[in-house]
Write a protein that binds this DNA or RNA. Structure first.
Length: 820
DNA sequence: AGCTGGCAAACA
DNA sequence: TGTTTG
DNA sequence: ACAGCT
């Protein structure tokens, strides 16, 4: 995305630039004439050149401040591109004056008010046009950078939704637009009825056709100040209008109704009767409890979608008296089931759209919403203060998905402990998305043993351990990282294990650099943004690797890496490695038997054609949508064998990769022993094989054989599935073979397993190396003391984040663990 | 200078 | 036991 | 033909 910042306040602009480059890896593009030369970024002579450059690199994060004083047509050109966002940074007059004063040379006399006003008038007039066209306005009323950065984080500038709205947002904004046509005196309400992502009809509220408009006095009830009964109202609701307009014939199988406001009970009845399958609403802190209940019983999915495209300050939608306010049930009794913090089937309905154009890499960590019918005011208060909306679900498939029924049966009638919910909310706020609550009550919970959340360790970019650093999916130094990985591959091939490790570590270190490395001084880490203190970068030694990087900086390439990459034997070696069962050793041997191609080796009988073909299939990347649909098929079958499984999709998918190599599914179940889980896995494998989905088992299942109770490792199923178009493969007719890894584990070690199966390899390696220094040994299913062999009790661990805090490690979001 | 560098399971 | 795998 | 730590 390409962001242009316009503002009168230079300090605020600077803070924003630093925030964008630090936390979202933005590169700065500027015009040579406008900004003094400083570190970082790219320079251009004209706007056109800059925009052209951005068009070529539209998938990177780019930012400019050079748009403020350009002509209207330049702003037009900028805004016409589909990847741009114009952000106005407004600021208090106080801040603007402070910035201006700081810019003036120290010798100038103090700025008097009249002079400041003259300057302000001129500057404002020059920028007014551009400012008024901004798609996002952020106001800085704070004096310190830290306070403002919090505002920036909340605004979530990088939200892809602003650049291209999801279907939900798109239809909801149409509903909002429809509401503008309302002529009801009480409230503006709009609705849009859709079918297969197409608008069928729209509606807004007001008096029926032919009658005097409500606004002109057509409806006595709405115009009189006194409260009159609902029955007196002549106004048709927006939902009714949309339904009437469409007619029953045009409402099909999967019609979705988008409403401005959560529908009243009267409308809900009509919605159910016309066969609408989903209702999405927007302004809904006050969910009508009766509507909710009706929809739940009738099987209509009710979701909430916030107006994501607006700035956070824009919370102007006051919930004034609405025409159905008297219908809202004030549900006081907390003792019924609806106040239990559980997720139900319909609550877990995934959001429409959003995910289906996720090809462009990292998913921004927007705060997600979840549907938990929590009636506790204190929890809602806490949630709001943390910036979480506890309403209807659009839990990402990326998340650990849990069913309500996963709660232990013996506790069925009991509420989740409030303190559990508090932890859950705090964890969710810190993680930037709603974490699955059921995992917080997965096992007996001891509220005393954990005070985590606030004392999170910060990531440390200087650390030599990858588990302390941020490694985004797309680094600004991807080329260099690639070159270092080629050298690493070469050392692996030569069986120089430790040299290979050193190159891996160096590559990971470069990967964690937040800025583009342009000179050898950049290989040092900046300690802070306003000082010149630098520190030597770990894992890049003073001799060998450093020399390679300097070569890269001088000539744009590393000759050794180029030579390796172009050598035919290396190509053959790589091809051999991708075959299942052939690792570095055999690939090295085979690649120097004099053969020049895989075909030749097949003829000789060293490898089979079958293996080669399979390898070609498995080398293809798997799009995210296909990963989730394959996981869906697996889980659908899992549910027939295990009542209410808990599962998580890990691997590259969880790390946000747009294309995965395989599908890693981790499954557990509350209260099951490992043996039971292993039996379940064997049955699942059989079932998937019988239906022809799982075509090849690549590893035998290890079934724990009763007597050895020491066998508490997770068992894994590594297999190949035939994925055809019905599971989301892009190739329409053809079957593509995909790797699936299904892992079952004990519920106690679930989060540890999630951590282990999410990777990346380098992250795991350094994680274990680090905890070892505290005499802890860590594997995929347990943590124990190296000397005493005492296992650490993990049953109180409530989340992956909690686990990391427990191990004194910083929380690095999965998307930032791409160190490979 | 000398030692360490992730780790366990499954297979050949 | 060494190799391959996740 | 690696790098960090003691």
């Amino acid at each position: 995305m390409f962001i242009a910042l316009v503002s009168l306040d230079k300090n605020t602009v600077q803070w924003t630039l630093q925030y964008l480059s630090r936390e979202h890896n933005f590169t700065q593009l500027e015009l040579e004439s406008q900004v003094p030369k400083e570190r970082g970024g790219q320079r251009f002579d004209t706007h056109t050149q800059m925009i052209e450059y951005a068009t070529q690199h539209w998938q990177s994060n780019l930012v400019t401040t050079s748009l403020h004083s350009c002509t209207c047509s330049d702003v037009d050109t900028f805004l016409r591109r589909p990847f741009t966002l114009l952000v106005a940074l407004e600021s208090s007059i106080e801040n603007i004056k402070k910035s201006l004063t700081q810019q003036l040379p120290p010798s100038t006399p103090a700025l008097d008010l009249a002079a400041f006003l003259r300057w302000f008038d001129g500057a404002y007039r020059a920028q007014r046009d551009t400012l008024s066209r901004a798609q996002l306005n952020i106001y800085n009323g704070h004096e310190t950078e830290d306070a403002f950065v919090d505002v920036l984080r909340e605004a979530n500038i990088v939200d892809e939704q602003r650049i291209r709205p999801s279907w939900d947002t798109y239809f909801m904004e149409l509903a909002d637009l429809a509401s503008q046509r309302s002529n009801c005196m009480k409230r503006r309400v709009g609705a849009v009825l859709t079918q297969d992502k197409r608008v069928v009809s729209t509606g807004y509220n007001g008096t029926p056709k032919g009658l005097l408009n409500c606004a002109d006095g057509g409806c006595k009830r709405c115009n009189s100040g006194v409260e009159m009964g609902f029955a007196e109202c002549l106004c048709l609701h927006a939902e009714e209008n949309a339904l009437l307009e469409a007619g029953r014939g045009r409402i099909g199988e999967c019609a979705v109704l988008y409403c401005n406001t959560c529908p009243c009970l009267g409308c809900a009845v009509k919605i159910v009767q016309t066969g609408i399958s989903q209702v999405v609403y927007n302004h809904g802190y006050r969910v009508d409890q009766k509507t909710l209940e009706l929809f739940r019983n009738a099987g209509v999915v009710l979701r909430h979608t916030p107006m994501k495209r607006r700035a956070p300050s824009d919370k102007s939608t006051t919930d004034e008296e609405c025409d159905d306010s008297d219908e809202i049930a004030q549900n006081q009794d907390q003792d019924d089931n609806s106040s239990q913090a559980t997720l139900s089937e319909s609550d877990l309905a995934p959001a429409e759209g959003g995910g289906d154009h996720s090809g462009s890499g990292i998913k921004s960590s927007t705060i997600k919403t979840a549907s938990i019918p929590l009636n506790s005011p204190s929890l809602n208060q806490l949630a709001t203060s943390l910036g979480l909306l506890i309403t209807h679900s659009d839990i990402d498939v990326n998340d650990v998905i849990v069913k309500s029924e996963c709660l232990p049966n013996k506790h069925k009638q009991q509420h989740a402990h409030p303190s559990v919910c508090h932890h859950w909310l705090r964890d969710s706020a810190a993680a930037g998305r709603i974490l699955p609550i059921a995992l917080y009550v997965l096992d007996d919970y001891n509220p005393n043993n954990s005070e985590d959340g606030s004392d999170d360790l910060p990531p440390n970019p200087q650390s030599k351990n990858a588990c302390f650093r941020i490694h985004p999916l797309n680094s600004p130094n991807e080329h260099l990282v690639h070159a270092l990985r080629i050298l690493k591959q070469d050392r692996v091939a030569r069986d120089e294990r430790w040299n290979a490790l050193a190159y891996s570590r160096a590559a990971a270190m470069v990967k964690s650099f937040p800025h583009r490395i342009r000179s050898k001084d950049d290989i040092r880490l900046q300690l802070s943004y306003d000082s010149n203190d630098t520190v030597h970068t770990k894992n890049i030694g003073e001799k060998k690797i450093r020399a390679k990087i300097e070569e890269y900086l001088n000539y744009g390439r590393i000759s050794e890496a180029e030579t390796i990459q172009n050598s035919p034997s290396h190509k053959l070696y790589n091809a051999l490695c991708s075959i299942q069962g052939i690792g570095p050793r055999r690939a090295y041997e085979l690649s120097r038997t004099g053969a020049s191609s895989l075909g030749e080796l097949v003829e000789r009988g060293s490898i089979t054609q079958e293996d080669v073909t399979l390898a070609q299939h498995l080398e293809l990347g798997i799009p995210r949508t296909e990963v989730s649909s394959i996981a869906g098929v697996v889980m659908e079958n899992a549910r027939t064998l295990l009542p209410h499984p808990t599962h998580a999709i890990c691997g590259g998918y969880r790390r946000g990769k747009s294309e995965s190599n395989d599908i890693d599914i981790l499954i557990t179940h509350h209260g099951y022993t490992l043996q039971q889980m292993n039996e379940f896995l064997a049955n699942l494998a059989r079932r998937l094989q019988d239906m022809g989905f799982l075509t090849k088992l690549m590893r035998q299942l290890s079934l724990s054989d009763g007597h050895s109770d020491k066998h508490d490792y997770q068992s894994t199923l590594l297999g190949v599935v035939a994925s055809s178009s019905k599971y989301g493969t892009t190739d329409s007719a053809q079957v593509t073979f995909r790797r699936v890894d299904i892992i079952v584990c004990h519920p106690h070690s679930f989060h540890l397993e999630v951590l282990a199966w999410t990777g990346s390899v380098m992250y795991e390696r350094d994680l274990r190396a680090f905890v070892k220094r505290r005499n802890l040994k860590l594997n995929a299913s347990s943590v124990y003391n190296e000397h005493t062999n005492n296992e650490v009790d993990l049953s109180g661990i409530r989340s992956e984040r909690h686990l990391l805090a427990f191990l004194h490690l910083p929380w690095i979001a999965p998307e930032n663990r791409n160190c490979d």
